[in-house]
Amino acid sequence: MQGFESAFESVEFLLIAGIVIVLAYLALEHKEIVYAAFFFGIMASFVAGFFLLLEAPFVAGMQIAVYTGGISALIIFGVLLLPRAQDSTLEAIESPRAKKIGILVSGSIMFISAILALRFPWSETIPEGTIDASLDVALLAEWLWGDHGVYVQIVALIMVTALVGVIALMKMDKAELMKDITGEFGIEARPVPEEIEPEPEESPEPEEAPESEKTSEPEASEEVAD
């Protein structure tokens, strides 16, 4: 039974590792960025399988809840809001020298750290056979909430700071939109043609014109997308 368990664990590790690496490569290299975002979501849920192998059930659950449910949904939503990102011509840096340097640096990071991981005598540094399989979530909760409760409050403050930053950025975005309408270089900055002198008491434009003005914002970004 013991031999079966370890063999099963090795097979499961190799299966999950292969799936995760292939999905990560696809998320970086697939031509369609919508598919790439979906591949990233599936990769994040397979990483939770590693956490289950490593005796961390709560971390696995949080990985699925936040990464797969929140962050990958956020990325897919960002792709939806930015149709220009679906342009597959901006895949990589055009200059071959910069691309070569990038591949070289990341490849050397991977190579050196993989050598370090496989050759370093971990068994002398960390005593083996001391896996605490009886660890349950209650101990983790007591560590995080009871002994180190400040961390949780700091996480709440980080979340609120991100939210305030998002609101401030969206307000700046709206101010930029308003500048298009009322600003110095806005819609109304075009000079009035001399031969058609507008009446001073002319009523403002009918309602169709501002409506089309409003919807022309997303359409302007559409033509670059294709």
């Binding site: 690496i21 990560a24 970086l28 342009d87 990589a92 640096v105 990341s106």
Partner: peptide, 17 residues
């Protein structure tokens, strides 16, 4: 995984990538 992510961050031009 860290090397793959570094490759994506250094070589790609798309912000979402």
């Amino acid at each position: 995984l860290i090397g793959l992510g570094a490759y994506g961050m250094m070589v790609k031009r798309n912000l979402i990538r």
